[in-house]
Design a protein around this nucleic acid. Structure first.
Lengths: 119, 119
DNA sequence: TGGTGGCGCTACGCTCGATGTAGCGCAAGC
DNA sequence: GCTTGCGCTACATCGAGCGTAGCGCCACCA
């Protein structure tokens, strides 16, 4: 393992940035890791192989991809099928769905920024 | 400045992890920075002073807090009032709202993890 | 009016996470 | 048995994040 020295980021336990273990904090911890949101997003179309996933994420280094996938698996949000392809668990799917408003918002953000730049 | 060497993370421009400049990617870039989600979250109750905000975020280092607030300001999501207190812009508020489903999900996640652990 | 204390924030050195490249082990195809 | 491609790890490098110290500013009070 590339060794991630702990940091499971699971609700109910103290996580980086919060002793309380409040679920939302665990979520922030998990999603606040670099590439995490992007990887989650790219997993939306079902099982993907390691290298394909890497390509979809602009060739991020395999080290980080591997680490993040481990994070996701530990958190119970992703898993591997028989052919070692990566996919979301039902729980992971739910997370993805609850991220949907973000896409809507990002469009609005783009518009707003654009208008601001024009003026 | 602690200097963040570019990387404005604004939609419409290439960002780290994506040449396309698709808004959602810019969003992932922005929110994927450490403490970003947490800070956004802690800003939900209106204007907060720097040190108060720092305290709410488990005493994260002022360096990072300052950097993140700059990020937010650059992105047009936060601003400072007359007394230099930090608060979200309307756009920032919208982002916060679209993060709401995350809280719901995190509760479900906590339950699921809990049950899994018990068995 | 000089002292004290609190606040916003920067400087700076160190650590650890992220990056990039190389390559191993394995399975399939020829 | 050699090549090709995949999943993933090793390892060295670099940069982001962290912690501590402290500066400049203002308010309050003696």
């Amino acid at each position: 393992m590339t060794d991630r020295a702990g940091r499971p980021a699971v609700p109910g336990e103290p996580v980086r940035g919060s002793q309380t273990g409040r679920p939302i904090m665990a979520t922030f911890d998990l999603l606040g890791r670099r590439w995490m949101l992007r990887i989650l997003w790219e997993l939306r179309h079902g099982p993907v192989g390691f290298r394909a996933l890497q390509a979809q994420c602009d060739q991020l280094s395999p080290t980080v991809l591997s680490a993040r996938l481990t994070d996701l698996r530990t958190a119970g949000l992703a898993e591997q099928d028989e052919s070692r392809a990566h996919r979301l668990t039902p729980l992971g799917e739910e997370l993805l769905e609850s991220l949907a408003p973000l896409r809507i918002w990002s469009e609005r953000w783009a518009e707003a920024t654009d208008t601001a730049r024009r003026t």
